[in-house]
């Protein structure tokens, strides 16, 4: 059970696909101009990831080694087509703003990477959890990145979007002190934001590691000085 939990949780922090593995940069940089776009892209990718992980894991015994990549791509493309068509039918505006990046999920490194590195070697249940965790980690990252860029670059916070209704607050409208920093919804802003996020994550990780190391040192020190634990010479 603990392994299942680990496989599920690793996508959020320890092996976060965007921030740690730095995979799937194309959608990460291109579509996170707003929180809603980021969320939509993340969920679309997650659905494809879960589906492809499960199917690849199911057929992992019958795919010949030499043609495994084309086989994965066919499986992934099937799910992408499903997602593409459902989005077009159900959420036309989102589909339009994501545009080409929906079909491009086929070649998303995260999905192909999980199929090759995980689903083709693990059981269906674990692959499902892996896909779900990675997909959710990706979605959360894209959503936060999109929200960050939208707030700074467009000055809006989107409450919800339903069909053609977009409810959002404008933060710095009027003659306030703050101004929206347009660059953050332009391509350079994507790199700035991602860089800031990775840097913050690294700072937290380094600090955590240092604290762990200090705690470990303390334990070692204690065990070395404690007379009861000393080995007889």
């Amino acid at each position: 059970m603990s392994r299942a939990r680990d496989e599920f949780l690793k996508g959020f922090w320890k092996e976060n696909p965007t921030m740690v593995l730095v995979l799937g940069m194309c959608p990460t940089l291109a579509v996170t101009t707003s929180a809603f776009n980021g969320l939509g892209m993340g969920i679309a990718t997650m659905v494809v990831l879960v589906g492809s992980n499960v199917v690849v894991s199911l057929i992992r015994g019958i795919i010949p080694k030499k043609v495994r990549i084309p086989a994965y791509v066919v499986v992934i493309a099937t799910f992408v087509t499903l997602v593409d068509m459902s989005l077009e039918a159900g959420m036309y505006n989102l589909h339009r703003s994501l545009g080409l990046f929906i079909p491009l999920i086929v070649v998303n490194c995260i999905i192909l990477g999980r199929a090759e590195a995980f689903a083709s070697k693990n059981s269906v249940g674990m692959s499902f959890l892996d896909g779900l965790g990675m997909g959710l980690g990706f979605t959360v990252t894209l959503f936060v990145l999109g929200a960050f860029r939208e707030i700074l670059g467009n000055g809006t916070v989107t409450a919800f979007v339903y069909q053609d209704t977009i409810v959002q607050w404008h933060l710095y409208s009027g003659a306030g002190v703050l101004h929206k920093t347009l660059v953050f919804i332009l391509p350079p802003g994507a790199f700035f934001s991602l860089g800031i996020f990775v840097a913050v994550m690294n700072v937290i990780k380094t600090r955590r590691k240092r604290l762990d190391q200090e705690a470990l040192d303390k334990v070692n020190e204690a065990s070395r000085t404690a007379p009861s634990l000393q080995q007889p010479a």
Binding site: T181, V183, F184
Partner: peptide
């Protein structure tokens, strides 16, 4: 240049 791209009007 950052400002020029970020705040083109101002």
């Amino acid at each position: 240049v950052f400002l020029l791209i970020a705040f083109p009007v101002a």
